[in-house]
């Protein structure tokens, strides 16, 4: 009996020092789905785990469909958000989302661009040649897969609603790749392709630079963006920001018994400190194309 008491005296304080399940706050990070939920979870679970370890909060990875994002954010579902730059602008304008950091990836770092492409040898070599052609766009809320190209056309005096034979948006996941393959295999004459997807598909050997003619490319606009809800504790936001900036390509976390590189898993090169005014280009595009948050009926 004295031995048992002694053991209790030794181990009870140790147990009290450990984090008990439910003892830490649980907060959601809403991650906008790029392709599908499965991919979003695989990409961002290591990053969420890393943030939980660094910040001392149990963050949850919540994959969110682009079109549901605003409604769920308004309902208070997310303390932090990871979205494209147009969704950031919408949430900022309508719900006072705070800019945290911008994700960096590829040739243009924290920025990216939208391109209008045609199959090489198709005879389509300039935006003027687009009249009466069949075009395929990426998802409607994609800044570099829809917005930038729609704006490029309007700026060149082309109205996609009237001047094209018709245009379509692919269904299901991997829309950006479908758009590129749509032109590659001749289903469409021209496509709205994100510069980053052209870059990664070329690097992966899925396409070659000689396959396409780039008819126009938009100015560089901010890429995917981390934001924080205005209600989120500023001290916690500062910790998250610091943790994200401290990430290196070598940072790992344990996921399902394996050490996983956080940035590599998330397809991120790092994070950059853009300012809200850097998103003005996106705002201008949204205004010119009558897109949210400035849409007028």
């Amino acid at each position: 009996m004295p031995t048992l008491l002694l053991l209790l005296l030794v181990f009870l304080p140790l147990l009290a020092g450990c984090d008990q399940p439910g003892s830490r706050p649980v907060l959601n990070i809403g991650f906008m789905n790029c392709n599908n939920e499965q991919e979003t979870l695989a990409r961002f679970r290591p990053l969420t785990t890393y943030l939980s370890e660094q910040v001392g909060v149990d963050f949850r990875t919540v994959p969110v469909d682009t079109h549901e994002f605003e409604e769920r954010f308004a309902a208070g579902d997310f303390a932090l958000t990871h979205t494209n730059s147009l969704l950031y602008v919408i949430l900022k304008e309508n719900h006072d989302l705070r800019l945290l950091l911008t994700e960096s990836r590829g040739n243009f770092g924290p920025r990216t661009a939208g391109a209008i492409i045609a199959r090489k040898g198709s005879g389509i070599t300039s935006l003027d040649d687009l009249r009466g052609k069949r075009m395929v766009f990426g998802p409607m809320m994609a800044p570099s897969g829809y917005l930038a190209q729609y704006d490029l056309m309007l700026q060149a005096g082309l109205d996609p609603e009237r001047d094209l034979d018709y245009y379509a948006i692919p269904s299901g996941s991997f829309k950006h790749e479908k758009v590129v393959y749509g032109v590659y295999f001749g289903d469409y004459d021209v496509a709205a392709a994100p510069a980053l997807d052209l870059e990664t598909m070329t690097r992966d050997g899925k396409i070659t630079a000689d396959d396409f003619e780039i008819l126009a490319q938009s100015p560089l606009i901010p890429y995917c963006t981390f934001g924080s809800a205005k209600e989120t504790d500023p001290e916690l936001v500062t910790k998250v920001r610091k943790a994200l900036l401290a990430l290196t390509p070598e940072t790992t976390v344990a996921i399902d018994g394996e050490q996983v590189k956080v940035l590599k898993a998330a397809w991120i090169d790092g994070f950059e400190d853009l300012q809200d005014r850097d998103y003005d280009l996106v705002r201008d595009m949204a205004r010119r194309t009558n897109m949210p948050p400035y849409q007028v009926f």
Binding site: N107, A113, A115, A195, L198, E199, T202, R203, G205, T208, A209, D210, F212, E213, I214, Q217
Partner: peptide, 15 residues
Amino acid sequence: GALPEALLKLDEIAR
């Protein structure tokens, strides 16, 4: 002046 295409060509060569 085809800078985006030039970058893609570089991506291809970098493979």
